[in-house]
Amino acid sequence: MSNNKLFGLIFCLMFSAGSAQADEAQLKRGAHVAVEVCNTCHSLKYLKYSDFLKLGFSKAEVDAMRGTKGMADPLISQMAPADELAMFSTVPPDLSLMAKARDGGANYIYAMITGFYTDAKGQTANHVFPGIKMPDVFMIAQADAAGRQGIEQKARDVSAFLEWASDPQAEERKTLGRYVIGYFVFLTVLLYFLKKKIWKRLD
């Protein structure tokens, strides 16, 4: 492979990598679902209320979300773990890293939330997570077509939000990465010509 082709390939990789980005409006909608629904039972302990400012929420909006909790407080579940254990016979897992902790990431979360159905015995079951102890919070198993659409949208939003929550630095990382890779491509091209120049002395 010629060097030009190689560098072309690297440039392509550089600018295509990590292009799929959830838009800010979706992340905000997802944040509302997470705080108002998920956070009832699940903690997101690696997130602080102040982190919502990074999503573009105003301070007033965050104040409304946090209620009596402090700006620097982590998102701990509304229910006490002991009550949860009594109610669900398990403590719901923390969600801050959920999008990284399952193969499939956000897609897994979406499939799980929308995966509830009513089985032959008339009980609620889940396609993705058989034996799940979480109730069908959006009641998708009973929803009609129109209701389903709304729930699927909510599931998409909250999945996108949880992906952001699992890796809030992703945007910064990719931006910095473009500069760093660009720098190294430039440096490597220079080193290539310098190498050619130095080795010419042997001719």
């Binding site: 990789l13 990598a17 990465g177 890779i181 190294f184 310098l194 130095i198 080795w199």
Partner: peptide, 21 residues
Amino acid sequence: IKDLFGLGIFMIVYLLIVFFK
């Protein structure tokens, strides 16, 4: 210089993973 050029190529591949995957 030959090793440094090789290092440049290595760093590009390594940092692509660090920053993007």
